[in-house]
Nucleic acid binder design. Structure first.
Lengths: 144, 144
DNA sequence: GCGTATGGTTCGTAGTCCCAACCAAATCCG
DNA sequence: CGGATTTGGTTGGGACTACGAACCATACGC
């Protein structure tokens, strides 16, 4: 990873370096925006995943690569804040279906908009064709 | 940010989305590799920054965007593990110069090599020309 | 039906992070 | 010069993240 400061103060030496630098920059933005909405990055991820569809606690944990015990606490705190709702599983009464509340959905949408706005300058540094090219290259690199 | 799962299971809709997905993927790799060396991502960042040059506690905190009290604890734990050395500042006797120990330097180098290795598949998914292009585009996007 | 596997929660521990309070050294300025 | 202020670090308290182990309850397999 060569060097991984928040502020890139030198030209990246190679591709891995550039990826790492970029990632730290992006994460810094995400963390800041999340914090502006009183969310940790992890909490935001939980809500973002749930935006797509409701999930059970274990599935949620798997998605984020966390232990179910960790997820239990995360869901619990979000629940107390009224951002999501726990419902007993339909078919399996052991399971707990977690879904966003209206407030939760609204919050995610607001945060997403802010993230778009915050990362806009990055995109703006590139010409439209470059943006498309970058997007395509990232997609290709990620596909495995 | 649209959706931010660890595993990209859909084509990114736009550039911001691709950046966020990529960043989570990269951070997951960094976190995993760091953990394999009994380091948290934050600890790794501290050591990586110090690899370049010794810094005082406050400068270190600024670099990583953390409070000095947080940095104090991080330095303390790394010190106890023998990864770095605290020395009273040369000119300013309030200051504390923090530098890597030999063990610390060695550890950072090993982790860096592992990160390179771990992210190699990503680079391998691209042709050499594409790699250069991606690196250049990321560098351009980051420059602000 | 009984044993085992699975889904979640709880508990204890360690690390991260912040803010506020604090001490000591350095610097300002009257 | 010397008291007031600023600056560098540490300490303490509190919330959150994260893990593993232990623990219930329900589901499933034989």
């Amino acid at each position: 990873m060569a060097a991984m400061p928040d502020e890139p103060d030198a030209a990246p030496a190679d591709l891995v370096d550039a990826l790492v630098r970029t990632s730290f920059a992006v994460m810094a933005v995400l963390t800041r925006v999340a914090a502006e909405h009183d969310l940790s990055l992890t909490q935001l991820r939980v809500l973002a995943v749930l935006r797509d569809r409701p999930l059970r606690v274990t599935a949620l944990a798997d998605h984020l690569g966390l232990e179910k015990s960790t997820m239990s606490g995360l869901v619990d705190r979000a629940d107390k804040r009224g951002l999501l709702v726990r419902a007993p599983g339909e078919r399996d009464r052991r399971a707990v279906d977690v879904r966003l509340s209206a407030a939760g959905e609204e919050l995610v949408d607001r945060v997403r908009a802010d993230v778009e706005r915050a990362l806009d300058p990055v995109a703006a540094a590139l010409a439209p064709a470059e943006r498309r090219r970058l997007r395509a290259l990232l997609a290709k690199a990620l596909a495995r």
